[in-house]
Structure formats: structure tokens, C-alpha cells
Design a protein around this nucleic acid. Structure first.
Length: 570
RNA sequence: GCCUUGGUAGCUCAGUUGGAUAGAGCGACCGCCUUCUAAGCGGUAGGUCACAGGUUCGAAUCCUGUCCAGGGUACCA
């Protein structure tokens, strides 16, 4: 990373100047907006206070004392650095040497991370919001592994509790209907809230009848519940795999009840004096840890609240990992203080429970905002994937920062697949592959009368050896300013991949990968438009083909981290 | 009321601990295919960074207040 090198050199020079208090001022390396200035820039203006000098003079002093092999110029308080051809070559060489590992780092230092996301109830198909967490979570997982974390991905199944009773009762109605009775969902508004009236239970009911051959007057509600749970979970699991999301473990809430982990954790909180009884319920003193109010663990009717098993689950997770990462929807925001409080009370470090709060997804149908809800007939994640494909869906879901509400315009996503950014990016990859293919194919000269057969430009062995001798820039000093500029821009974009990965992982922001992919593709398309690769002078051909190889590698890595395919042709 | 996320070009959004002339995509308009994929490239137009104060040599960025929008504020999950 040349950024680090530049910063190191500047810091050494600043230290030599001996400004009092300069150590506490942190300088930054940035990329100049205007590439004419240079490849990297350091603004020394922050030193003005301790140096008591105009920024321009400081910059001059620093440059006088710096040991840097390359062009340097000063504009106001900015010191601009230009990489030499040799330094740029080393970028390409590094990419081709490290291959699919280029860009990786050891920031995570092997820390054990348990990343939990999606964690939907097994009471219906995924809606589009689940898709956002699924895509982001799996991409974040890959990004963190790429940065030296030891990540396990987990899905918590809420397969206990009242919603399962609702599910069982709903399936009962559907089974009775399929058996030819006139059973109906209740019409009373208060009652209907306890039922899932979506069509998706009809095939489940049919399957239940086929497998169990039940009679209408003898339906076992528990059996219905577990059957429905298993069927809907299977649907979810299949869809996740189709969507490129591979959890290491599906953790059943039910097992926490069966093993009495829930009871044990509550007992532990009691022992520690963190609970009390009031109005017939058992309360957790979460206000002792900064929550707005205390929270109920066991309701007056004796049943656990949702919080109780969830505390047991998080306690279990802390026993298995150093860092807990949860992706939660913004509607769970109020839940964070009580969970952190519970972890503190149980003796865990709540700073190691990081909740990534994701803003919700709005569905736009016919230009109208539609509320999500699985009880209404609606567009599911499965439907969306059918319509726009896995690649486009994943890219769209990851593309925006987790802090902004995602307006998913279904009609737009369906109709405008041609100018979808994901195609733009994939097209760049396919183009690069096409060049590499053409380079080793036999040619036919159609310019003369006879169609003459010519040998390919390169053998596969020659292409493989290009990685060993990436003398790119020297050979690229052609008499074409646009070609030089776009070539250099592409190399610098490849160079910035390492620091991009680092800042993306530090801020847990896979969306940065989408932006990078688009910028990288754009730089390549410009290179392509200005710089003919094949059938030019041999040195130039080798040099440009080497750059194509390096570009293809980095784009493929970026797409892999996004869980989006990198097609060889389109 | 309180907690929380936003408000930047017609639309959707970037803008990394305060720094160079505030950027990208889409949409609009004008150009570019006999040669490696035109799902592409070049160009033009488009801004009071919600508003008002404050801190600073310097603010889209930090502080205070106001306005607007989403989410939360359960002995639901």
C-alpha cells in the first residue's frame, strides 16, 4: 500500500523538523480529486498551529527533508506525490502474484466472530427486508474473513413461543379447508391477528394431508405446529442457498427451552440480584445498566417473554466467540440497551456485542409504497429473485449504506435490468475475459483476397508468464494522453483496493464494495475505449494484456466478496 | 415527549478522524460502432449540501436550536 509508504515518509520528515506538539497531530493521505496534482496527497495544514508557519512553508520544509523516490510538488498546504513507473508496475505485479488473496489483510487478527443475521420466524416465506440482511450479512462475513477474522455465520430460529401456536391454528384451518369442510379464518379483527392467512400454507396443508392422512375431527395441534415449522424452515433454507447465503449453523430457540438454558440464565440473574417480582411478573433490572425501564422476563401468566430465551442465546454465543455481531432491523432498535444490559449483568463485556442496525426496506409497487407484512398477500424474496435474478438482487440489496432506508422499486428493478449497475460491472469482467480469450485464439486475416490463417497472439504459457514480468508503465508511455491517463487511473484504482477493503471492514460496510466495483469497471471501460490491447506493437500488447489480467483478478475478487457472479461472457 | 436513522443535482445515493473547484449512477440533451463484447465511451445541462446561529485560518462534515420524513418507545415476537 503506497498510502502507508507516503505517510511514513512524511511523518519521518515532520519528526526531523521538530515542531513542538507535532506528534499529537495525525496527518492523512488522500487521493487528489484532480489526478493532475498527483497520485497521493498529504495536507500539512493541521500542523500550522504547532509550527506557527503558513501551510505552504511547512510543506516546503517537509519536502526538503523527505526521502521519497518519485515526483513531489506543493500546492498551498498540499504535498502531492506521483508514483514512478516502477512503483506502478509493482502494483500490477503484486496483484498478479497474490492473485485471489490480493487485497486481503490481517486486521481481524484471528478474532472469533459470531455473526448473526436474518433470524426470521419460521412462520412464512421471507419478505424483501430479509433479503437485505441476508445479502449484507453474507457479504460482510466474506469481507471479514478476507480481513483475518474467524467468522461463523448463524441464524437463530424463533421456533418457540406464541407465534408457533398461531401458525398451528392457521394450518389447522387450511387443512380443514383442504379436507372439504367449511372452516374459515375468524372475521373478528382482534382474533384474525392470531392467524397467518397467506396462501403459502395451502401447499403445506396439502402435503400434511398426503403424508399424515388425518381426519377432520381428530387434528393434533402440536403435530400441525411442528409440521408447519419444519416445512416453512425448509423453504427458507432452500431459498438462502439459492441466494448464495450459507449459514454455518441454524440455532433453534426450542433447544434453549428443552435444555432449560433459559431457566438457568434467569436463575443466574436472580442469584446476582438483578431481578425482582412485581405485579406477578419477574423483572430484570436493566435500568441499572442504562436502559429506560426495567424489563419483564417472566410474564404474570408464567410464560417467558421473548427477551428471556434471547438472553440465554446471547449468553451462549458469548461462550463461543470473542465478538458478537448482530444485524437487526431498525424496528429492533429499542431492544439493544436491554440486551447489552443483560450481557453486562451476566458478566460479559457488552462492547463486544455489536449491533448493526439496518434501516428497513420499502417496497414500491406501481409507484406506491407498500407496507411489508407476511399476513397479507405480497411479493416475497423468492418472487423477487425469480424476477430480477440473484446477482441483481444481491447487488441492489448491498449497494446502499445500512443507514439509509432502501426503497426497492419492484417495477424499476424488473424493467430496467439493462441499465442496472450490476450488469455494467459484470460486463466489464466479461469484456476483459473476451480479450484474454481472443488473445489465444487462432486468427484469420480477412484483409487480403485469401483468408489467411494466423497464429494466436499468445500461447497460454506466454500469458501465464506475463505475470512474472509486468513491465506495464514503461511500455505504456505511448503518444496518446488519453490512453496514458486511463491506464494510470486503472492502475491506481487497483492500488486502492487494499485500503478500500480495510475501511470497508472497519466500518462493517459491504456497500463500499459495490461502489468500488462500479468505479473499477468504469476505469476499465475507459481504458478499453482508449487503449487497444490486441494487434498492436508487441511490447505494448504484452503490457496492456498484463493490466487486463490484473484488472480481471481484482474485479473477480470484489464480486466474490459481494456474492455476485463474475461471468466470462454476456 | 424521549430514543434513533435520514434531509446533498429532476430521481436514487456517495462524500473515509473538518481541508484543493461538493462527486457518481439513472433520467434529459448532443456526438462516437469496417478492427479485442456499443450491456460501452466522450461531451453538455443540472447545487443556497433542509433552515438559522456558533466554533475555526477553513464546515456538507463539529456544537446549539428549529423544520420535515422513516423506525422505536409492550407482561408481541
Amino acid at each position: 500500500m503506497f498510502k502507508d509508504l507516503v505517510l511514513e515518509k512524511v511523518n519521518i520528515a515532520v519528526a526531523k523538523l521538530g515542531f513542538e506538539g507535532a506528534e499529537s497531530i495525525e496527518l492523512r493521505v488522500e487521493t487528489p480529486k484532480n489526478p493532475e496534482f498527483g497520485d497521493f496527497a498529504v495536507n500539512v495544514s493541521p500542523l500550522a498551529k504547532v509550527a506557527r508557519m503558513a501551510p505552504f512553508l511547512i510543506a516546503q520544509k517537509v519536502v526538503e527533508n523527505i526521502d521519497f523516490d518519485g515526483d513531489i510538488n506543493i500546492v498551498a498546504g498540499f504535498i502531492n506525490f506521483k508514483l514512478t513507473n516502477g512503483q506502478q508496475n509493482s502494483v500490477v505485479k503484486k496483484v498478479l502474484t497474490e492473485k485471489e488473496n490480493y487485497g486481503s489483510n490481517n486486521f481481524g487478527n484471528g478474532e472469533k466472530v459470531l455473526l448473526e443475521y436474518v433470524s426470521a420466524n419460521p412462520t412464512g416465506p421471507f419478505h424483501i427486508g430479509h433479503g437485505r440482511w441476508a445479502a449484507m450479512g453474507s457479504s460482510l462475513s466474506d469481507l471479514m474473513k478476507f480481513s483475518g477474522y474467524d467468522v461463523a455465520q448463524e441464524f437463530y430460529i424463533n421456533d418457540a413461543g406464541n407465534q408457533i401456536n398461531c401458525l398451528a391454528n392457521s394450518l389447522k384451518v387450511r387443512v380443514l379447508q383442504e379436507l372439504g369442510t367449511d372452516a374459515q379464518f375468524p372475521t373478528d379483527e382482534a382474533e384474525i391477528k392470531n392467524y397467518y392467512t397467506g396462501d403459502y400454507l395451502i401447499p403445506v396443508a396439502k402435503k400434511y394431508i398426503e403424508e399424515k392422512n388425518p381426519s377432520a375431527d381428530n387434528l393434533d395441534i402440536n403435530d400441525l405446529g411442528s409440521f408447519a415449522k419444519a416445512e416453512l424452515f425448509k423453504l427458507q433454507e432452500d431459498l438462502l442457498i439459492k441466494f448464495g447465503v450459507n449459514f454455518d449453523r441454524f440455532y433453534s430457540e426450542l433447544t434453549l427451552h428443552e435444555s432449560n438454558r433459559v431457566g438457568e440464565v434467569i436463575e443466574e440473574l436472580k442469584q446476582k440480584g438483578k431481578t425482582y417480582e412485581k405485579d406477578g411478573a419477574l423483572w430484570f433490572k436493566s435500568t441499572e445498566y442504562g436502559d429506560d425501564q426495567d424489563r419483564v422476563l417472566i410474564k404474570a401468566d408464567g410464560a417467558y417473554t421473548y427477551l428471556a430465551p434471547d438472553i440465554a442465546y446471547h449468553d451462549d454465543k458469548f461462550k463461543r466467540a470473542d465478538l458478537l455481531l448482530n444485524i437487526w432491523g431498525a424496528d429492533h432498535h429499542g431492544y439493544i440497551p436491554r440486551m447489552k444490559a443483560a450481557m453486562e449483568a451476566l458478566g460479559h463485556n457488552s462492547d463486544k456485542l455489536e449491533v448493526l442496525l439496518g434501516q428497513l426496506v420499502n417496497l414500491i409497487i406501481n409507484g406506491e409504497q407498500t407496507r411489508m407484512g407476511k399476513r397479507k398477500k405480497m411479493l416475497t424474496l423468492g418472487d423477487l429473485i425469480e424476477d430480477v435474478g440473484v446477482d441483481a438482487t444481491r447487488f441492489w440489496m448491498i449497494m446502499r449504506s445500512i443507514d439509509t432506508t432502501l426503497d426497492f422499486d419492484v417495477d424499476l428493478a424488473k424493467s430496467s435490468s439493462d441499465d442496472n449497475p450490476v450488469f455494467y460491472v459484470q460486463y466489464a469482467h466479461a469484456r476483459a475475459c473476451s480479450i484474454l480469450r481472443t488473445a489465444v485464439e487462432p486468427r484469420i486475416d480477412t484483409s487480403g483476397e485469401n483468408n489467411e490463417h494466423l497464429a494466436p497472439f499468445f500461447t497460454k504459457e506466454q500469458i501465464a508468464s506475463l505475470a512474472q514480468n509486468p513491465c506495464v508503465m514503461a511500455a505504456l508511455d505511448v503518444d496518446d494522453a488519453r490512453s496514458i491517463a486511463s491506464t494510470k487511473a486503472l492502475i491506481m484504482k487497483l492500488e486502492s483496493f487494499e485500503s478500500l477493503i480495510l475501511s470497508a471492514v472497519k466500518s462493517r460496510s459491504p456497500y463500499m464494495l459495490c461502489r468500488y466495483a462500479q468505479e473499477l469497471a468504469s476505469d476499465f471501460h475507459q481504458f478499453y475505449a482508449t487503449s487497444r490491447v490486441l494487434n498492436v506493437e508487441p511490447d505494448l500488447m504484452r503490457a496492456r494484456l498484463t493490466l487486463v489480467l490484473a484488472f480481471r483478478q481484482v474485479l473477480a475478487t470484489t464480486l466474490r466478496l459481494l456474492g455476485v457472479s463474475a461471468p466470462e461472457s454476456m
